[in-house]
Amino acid sequence: MSLILILEQVLNGLQFGVMLFLMAAGLTLVFGVMGLINLAHGALYMVGAFAAAAVAGATGSFLLALVASLAAAAAAGALVEVTVIRRLYDRDHLDQVLATFALILIFSEGTRWVFGSFPLFLDVPEYLSGPVTLPGGIKYPLYRLTIIAIGLVVGAGLFWLIARTRIGIQIRAGEADREMIAALGVDISKLYTLVFALGAALAGLAGALVGAIQSVQVGMGEPVLILAFVVIVIGGIGSIKGALVGALLVGLTDTLGGVFLPLLFALMMEPATATSLGASLASMLIYILMALVLLVRPSGLFGGSA
């Protein structure tokens, strides 16, 4: 085992974590501001990926594809918010779970109907493919580095938006006291649509970026959605900072656990058992991490009282 391997895996974990952050940020914003649990967030991730794959297939431009993913997911998000989600803010969580579960069924089957059951492929563009050599002699795919960079830039932009802009002030105010800011003349339903569309756009972007590494297929959003839930439970629901820390923790734990647990077990037992036991345990690692965090802090690392 070399240092280079470890660093490579740390970068992989970062890349995974950054993607999870894009997903979790939208979820946690929507929950923090509107008090809504949105299972259909993974469907918006899928919409982004499919839009990107379709546009890239038609135009050949990766940049246009990314723009399309943002636009399509934001539009789908706004549409869903206006038609369905808006009616759920005053309902209990059970209704929200069911209605958004119903949205998943509609989105998934609808996408299958339009695009068919076969996975689509989104190619990494020429100028981003191939490895680069990092200081220290590590060769690492340029595309994955780009993802990390995009994720960090978007994350910084989000922090800026929330902390410094007028919209951000309204969002934070909406989180604290929705009646009061409505009384102060802010159009709260417009604000909610905006927040929801923003979250959707981030999910769509994540879907498009990951779609170029994996295949673009129906149901691709669900495993990510559940990981994003784990992230915001660890980070504390409603906290963007928590989402960032949680996402990086989960990304690193999952990636490093998957690689190093089997190796660790191989020191103690025969290779075949070590591989299977290591893989099984590694797949459970982030949930164990979540359970540990909850034992110490039931409302997450950065959560207030839920």
């Binding site: 649990i37 779970v97 559940i226 839930f229 439970v233 629901i237 909850l294 409302s299 839920a306």
Partner: peptide, 17 residues
């Protein structure tokens, strides 16, 4: 130990585990 949305997400996560 938790309630509300946390409970929903945690049971979901354990199921997925």
């Amino acid at each position: 130990r938790t309630s509300g949305v946390y409970f929903i997400m945690i049971t979901l996560a354990f199921g997925q585990m």
